[in-house]
Every structure is written in structure tokens, then in C-alpha cells.
Computed example of a mutant assay.
Amino acid sequence: MSIEMDESLEQFIRYIQLERNFSIHTVKEYQHDLHDFLTFCKCEGISDLNEVEYLHARLYVTKLYDEKKARTSISRKISSIRSFFRFLNREYQLDDAPFSSLYHPKKEKKLPHFFYEEELLKLFEANVGDDLKSIRNMALLELLYASGIRVSECISIELGDIDLNYSILRVMGKGRKERIVPFGHFAQDALIRYVDEARPKMMKNKTHNRLFVNLRGSELTAGGVRYILNEMIENASLKTKIYPHMLRHTFATHLLNNGADLRTVQELLGHANLSSTQVYTHVTKEHLRRTYMNAHPRA
């Protein structure tokens, strides 16, 4: 039975959207990974997925290494293609052995980047202001640091998801798993000011319920969040790069540095496995080592 590439890809995308209920971001990653692989197959003269063999799988992975792709990216692409072939095996009895036999490359052990408390204080102090943009930016920064939420979770927050009286936030995380996250009074004050003073004026003639908006009143995007944070870094004259996940890393690291237990941090971050949270224990150990080496007279 012939299995047409583009049609089978469309079926798989519908499956992960409707049956597996994957997030928009995850679906886009699958689409990108599988489109790249199918383009490779076509270049190899393959027009039917029945023709894919282990040799083609090895050639594809070799191509990714030749292109200097990160190991994490290669590992993700292999996982995407495996899932695709498992789906085809279930639907069309296609042999899914070509990619199931591949080993995932070992992940590079990189410690997450985070801000030291002094750097973060400087970032907050440099961006205080009374204009609409400054009020919005401060609310965004305070909430990201106070809650440790992902940028995808942040831009999806609606007004009904946040309780400013009790300082709690309802977040829809990965796999459509809902969790409740608390935040402190600094974030509470910044959010109340933003919701009362800035957001109504920024909305103009828009009527949606998203919490964070751009200066035209439209929903803030992930790219918009990155732009805002980079602008705030420039205002603070900090010689470092920033990305939204860095504030999530900072949130977890500062909690552990100040005595929070690992299980609590896992719950707050929305990690399914404790192993995902344990990376931050390595960060705190490295922080302790550096502090010791800098401070001890005989170090």
C-alpha cells in the first residue's frame, strides 16, 4: 500500500492537534521537524514512505550533524519522526523500525543561565516609570520572576485566570495540565497598577481578554516579550543577554538558594518529572562553589 508523504503528514498533524491535544508551539515544532525530514526524503528520490529504510535514517542524522545542529535539536527531530512512524505503523502497518533503531545523541550538559539577585535588583530599578509602557513592562517582569511561568504560559493568561486579591494565577502548562501558582506582593502591586491604569488605555478599541497587550492593544506575542526584556536589559546597562526562560531559571535557582525544597519547586514550575527540576541543584552547587572560591582567603 502506497503512503503519500504530504497527505500522511496532514493526518498526523490533525491527530496530535485533536486527539493528543498538543499545544500550538509543540505542533509547529512537529511540523517543522517532519517537513525537514520529508524534504530530505524527496531529495533522496523517495516518493513513498514505504521506501524509507534504516540507511536513510542514518543518512538524515549524519546530515543534521554536518549542519552543526545542536544535540538537543537532533534528539527532538528523532523523537518527532519516531512518533510520526509509530502513527503510520498504527494506521497503515508501516514498518517503524528505521528510526526506532537509532540512538538519541547524549545531551550536552549545560547549566541554565540565571541572574544574581544584585543584577535582578538593578534590572527592576532601571525600568521604573509612570508611562503606559513602563507600567506594562514592570508588571510583565515582576510576574515572570515571581511565578517562574513559561513565556508561552504568560502570553496565554486571560484576565479571569488571575486573582489579584489572593495573589494566585491559574496557568495552563504543557500537555494542557492546569496548575495554580502564587506570586508575591511586588508582582501583585505591579499587576494591579497595570490592570487599573495602563491596560484599559492600551486596549483602545480592542475587546479580547488577554492580560498582556502591546501598545496597539493586540495580544502580546512571545517575540514581543523577548523584545521588551531586551529593551529592559539595555535600560539597566547590564552586560548580559536575556531570554524569557532565563527568568524561569532565576526563579527556581533563587528559591533553592533560599531554602525551598525540590518538590515544591517542581510543583511551581509544572515539571512532570523531578529530574527536570534537579538541574537547578547543580546550579546552586556551582553558585556555592564560586562564592567560596571568591570569598575564602585560602581558596
Rank of each mutant, 00 (worst) to 15 (best):
K239T: 11
K107C: 11
S147W: 08
E267M: 12
A252G: 13
Q31C: 10
L211N: 05
L123S: 10
F115A: 00
D95N: 15
E53R: 09
E10K: 13
I155T: 02
I78N: 09
S8L: 05
E118S: 12
V265C: 05
V52C: 10
S156H: 05
F22L: 14
L256H: 08
G175M: 07
H245R: 07
P244C: 08
L121Y: 13
R210T: 02
L55N: 06
A222C: 00
L211S: 05
L120F: 04
R136H: 05
I149M: 15
K42N: 11
G217L: 00
R179M: 07
P200G: 07
L38T: 03
L55F: 07
E44T: 01
S276P: 04
C41G: 08
L9R: 03
E231L: 03
L238K: 06
E53A: 01
R176I: 01
K241C: 08
Q278R: 12
L88F: 02
E286D: 13
V213P: 04
R179F: 08
N214K: 00
H245P: 03
V225F: 03
I233L: 11
E231A: 09
L18H: 06
F251I: 13
Q266E: 08
S237I: 05
L34M: 07
Y280R: 08
I180F: 09
R71G: 15
E51T: 06
N235P: 03
V213D: 02
V61G: 11
V61H: 11
M138N: 12
R71P: 08
L94K: 02
D130Y: 06
F251W: 09
F251H: 11
D130K: 09
L169P: 00
V61T: 13
V27N: 02
K68P: 03
M138R: 15
P297G: 02
H296D: 02
S79T: 14
F124K: 00
L132C: 02
L59S: 14
F99A: 04
L9D: 01
N273E: 11
K107M: 14
A97S: 15
T281W: 07
I155N: 00
A126R: 04
K107H: 13
I74S: 06
E29D: 12
T207M: 12
A190Y: 00
K122T: 14
P112I: 07
R289W: 00
Y292K: 03
L269Y: 08
N294R: 14
K177N: 14
G173H: 06
T240D: 05
F85Q: 05
I162L: 10
R226C: 02
E197K: 12
A299M: 08
M246C: 09
M138H: 12
S79Q: 11
A126D: 10
R90W: 11
N165A: 14
G224R: 04
L18F: 10
Y103F: 12
E19L: 10
G173L: 05
S73Q: 06
T240L: 15
F22R: 03
L55T: 09
S8A: 14
E153M: 07
F12W: 05
K239V: 05
G259V: 01
P98F: 04
L269E: 06
C154N: 02
Q266S: 07
I233G: 04
K285V: 11
T284C: 12
D261F: 10
I24M: 04
R290G: 05
G184P: 12
S73E: 06
E286Q: 14
G217M: 00
A70R: 14
T26R: 03
R170Q: 13
H104Y: 12
K63Q: 15
L191V: 04
E231I: 00
Q17K: 13
Y292E: 03
E119K: 12
R82M: 07
